[in-house]
Simulated scan of single mutants.
Amino acid sequence: MPLLTALVDNFNDNVIGANWGDSYGGVSEVGGQARVPLVAGAYAGYQTGRAWTLAGASIYLKTPVLPAASTGTDVGVHFMVTSSVAGTAIGFKINRVTSKLRMQSNVDYFDAAAVEITYDAVNHLWLRLREDGTNVYWDTSPNGSTWTNRRTLATPAWIPAAVDTCALDLFCYRDAGVTDFAAYDNVNTLSDGAVVTATGSGTMTTAATGAAARTATGTGTGALDTAATAAASAVYQATGSGSLDTDATATAGGTDHNDVDVQLGKPRSGWVVSAPWR
């Protein structure tokens, strides 16, 4: 049993959603709003299929753009829950000619006991219809959060009987005047769901996008931490250069004294020769 409470749309994708499959009259979704044209002598509206239930449910929305009265004598913006019986419906009408907000429970398209108040574009920006098993309530709000009840009526019998057969119809009509449009928005939601793109800088504890950090490895001259390789027969003196992690190649220095032959001659006077040279 899909309650009308579950119908949510902020119209921000600029595509008429599947829930509005019975829409008619050239409606469109523009600038994050449901736009309904008012063309003289023609009806147009955003309308769901007949699959919803008002009993035990609530539904609210706002009307940010209203049409001009122009030269019309019947210019209306409607927010109605309709039954499967033609002319049986309940909801709101904003009359742009009389500047009245009408709260109506229609049978055969009319409610002799309807309640009308002077329309206030600020305080009546948001409209809500709800049913609690006993009564139906018509409420208004300037912000979608703080509500004022404008009419209460014992629940008509058709509402609990019309389970899964109601439709929401957001429709407009003008009998004459210049073509313009009305807009509906924020059905059962206060969120516009906007995506904001911005730039910023991050710290070590936040995510940030930046240039990659690179580690540079340099070369240097080593002494204590490098190994010098010397020629095998060299005097143990060598110099060399290398990076910190490489071996240095050294060039032998000094004089080679390996395998030296010593020649001993005949002793001369003044020499003292000890054994074994005697």
Rank of each mutant, 00 (worst) to 15 (best):
T203C: 07
G45Q: 04
Q33F: 01
L4E: 00
D192K: 12
A154Y: 10
H124V: 06
Y24W: 06
P64T: 03
S269V: 08
T246R: 13
G91E: 02
D74P: 00
T118M: 11
S241E: 13
G41T: 04
Y43V: 05
A161T: 14
P142W: 06
G45H: 05
G193R: 04
T146P: 08
W20K: 03
A89N: 15
T246C: 06
V97K: 04
N19D: 09
Q47S: 09
R268H: 11
N10Q: 06
Y46E: 04
P64R: 01
G133H: 02
A51I: 07
D13H: 09
A211R: 12
H78V: 03
R130V: 03
T199H: 14
V196H: 08
T189R: 01
A234I: 10
W147P: 02
A6H: 12
W52H: 01
L264C: 04
G21L: 10
V136F: 04
T73F: 03
N14Q: 13
R214D: 12
S105R: 04
G202N: 12
I16T: 12
G265F: 06
T251W: 08
A213G: 13
G210V: 15
A68N: 10
D261I: 08
N95H: 09
A167E: 07
M204R: 15
R174K: 10
A121T: 09
V195C: 05
A183I: 00
D245F: 12
G133Y: 01
I90H: 01
A112L: 15
M1S: 14
G72K: 00
A69E: 04
A198M: 11
T255I: 15
A223S: 15
A182D: 03
V36Q: 00
T249W: 12
V115S: 09
G210W: 14
I117Q: 08
T205E: 10
D120T: 11
V178I: 14
W126Y: 10
G31H: 08
T217P: 05
F92M: 03
